[in-house]
């Protein structure tokens, strides 16, 4: 599969027809999810502030999942020199960075009324801030080095180093004393959230994942086009 799609032309041919579907399904899921967000009951303790969860959690998941994507693509790029791997990592990084900001901002807006503070330098929040710094570092290194291959190599190594941070984020709520709650969905003994609140959350998670898949495919195609442009220009200037 990865080998099959590593050819840029083939990648565009296969994924271009998928893009409108992803956009449509993502938008429909988002509309349904937003409806459920406001149709679901208030929390008996948190009141209406619990509705922040439906957007905070999906973007927090994605901020980590997309970083894993940047790391995996960088790995393929560094080891197997797949033509598209670096383009994919470069396309995913800004999306992940924006989602990390959203997770931090919505978390802060939820923390203020519930915990009485916008921010706490504890394990979970600090490790997510470090995640954002890795994203920014990756984007900055990639942009700063002019030679595309050298940029991909340096930024890729940075991305791989940052992978260490992912298990730290995941287990930060267990390792350290923290304001942030522990896992309540992906637990060995099943979710601990009421079904009324699990549904809007699941639909929002699905919507944001489908939409980000769409955005990422568009961005990878942009990278392919940028490379094609440079190749064409080089060819024209030689003639």
């Amino acid at each position: 599969m990865i080998n099959f799609l590593a050819n840029p032309e083939r990648f565009t041919r296969v994924t271009a027809p998928l893009r409108p579907w992803l956009a449509g399904i993502g938008a429909a899921l988002l509309a349904w999810g937003l409806y459920l967000c406001f149709a679901s009951p208030e929390d008996y303790q948190q009141g209406d502030s619990v509705r922040i969860m439906y957007i905070h959690v999906p973007f927090a998941y994605l901020s980590m999942a997309l970083y894993a994507g940047v790391g995996a693509a960088s790995f393929f790029g560094l080891i197997f020199r797949h033509a598209l791997a670096d383009a994919a990592a470069k396309a995913i990084a800004p999306v992940g960075a924006v989602f990390t900001v959203m997770a931090l901002v919505t978390g802060s807006l939820w923390g203020k009324p519930m915990w009485g503070t916008w921010w706490q330098w504890d394990g979970r929040m600090t490790s997510v801030l470090v995640l954002l710094l890795f994203y920014i570092g990756y984007i900055a290194v990639h942009a700063a080095i002019e030679d595309e291959q050298r940029a991909a190599k340096s930024a890729g190594i940075l991305a791989l180093v940052g992978l260490i941070n992912l298990p730290i984020i995941k287990f930060s709520v267990e390792w350290w004393n923290t304001l942030h709650q522990g896992a309540s969905i992906f637990r060995a003994d099943g979710p601990t959230i009421a079904p009324d609140m699990l549904w809007p959350l699941f639909v929002m998670i699905a919507a944001t994942h489908v939409l980000s898949a769409w955005i990422i495919l568009v961005r990878i195609d942009s990278e392919i086009l940028a490379r094609k442009y440079r190749a064409l220009r080089a060819k024209l200037s030689y003639n």
Binding site: F38, A39, D48, R51, I52, M102, L109, K112, P113
Partner: peptide
């Protein structure tokens, strides 16, 4: 039944949804 009355949490909830939807729309655009 949709519930748009966020009570005393209005500022926090609507700012969260506003920032998120604006960010998402901006990223897509």
């Amino acid at each position: 039944m949709l519930d748009f009355d966020m009570g005393k949490y209005g500022v926090y909830v609507w700012t969260s949804y506003g920032v998120t939807l604006l960010g998402l729309a901006g990223l897509i655009a």
